[in-house]
């Protein structure tokens, strides 16, 4: 039994802000932002919901790419963006509340980051 259909649309990093703004204008709420390390790239998922319709957009970036913050459209996004910065080392530009790496203090720097994964194997 499929519970719900989930669509994921790839988005270029340059168009991210425009697409997110579109969601905001259509009255979607931000469900989550999550990052996944795959090979040498980061997949960042932005999920939205409106009346139980779940939509997901994805940007795929290299570790040194700067991500524009979406806190201009969704004020509460700072919690996910700071988390992404602390756990993965992804740089986010222009957050409304920037903890500068102190939201989640970990004993290992950027434990989920690609660099940390490589360090472990050596």
């Amino acid at each position: 039994m499929t519970i719900e259909n989930q669509s994921t649309t790839p988005v270029e990093i340059g168009k991210l802000i425009g697409v997110v703004e579109e969601f905001r204008n259509q009255g979607y709420r931000l469900v989550q932002i999550g990052c996944t390390a795959t090979g040498d790239l980061y997949e960042i998922n932005y999920s939205f919901d409106k009346d139980y319709t779940f939509r997901n957009i994805r940007v795929t970036v290299t570790p040194d790419t700067e991500i524009p913050s979406i806190t201009g459209m969704y004020w509460g996004a700072f919690i996910y963006e700071n988390e992404m910065h602390d756990l993965f080392g992804v740089n986010v530009r222009g957050m409304n509340i920037d903890f500068k790496g102190t939201l989640i203090r970990t004993s290992v720097k950027n434990p989920f980051g690609i660099a940390a994964g490589k360090g472990e194997k050596q």
């Binding site: 519970i3 905001r24 709420r29 139980y52 969704y74 004020w75 509460g76 996004a77």
Partner: peptide, 23 residues
């Protein structure tokens, strides 16, 4: 709604969202 509140926090403010409705 726009700050991403969920559960009783959202429903206490009049936002009708309960994921159990997805079945």
């Amino acid at each position: 709604y726009h700050l991403g509140a969920v559960g009783p926090v959202a429903r206490g403010s009049g936002v009708n969202v309960d994921l159990r409705k997805t079945g």
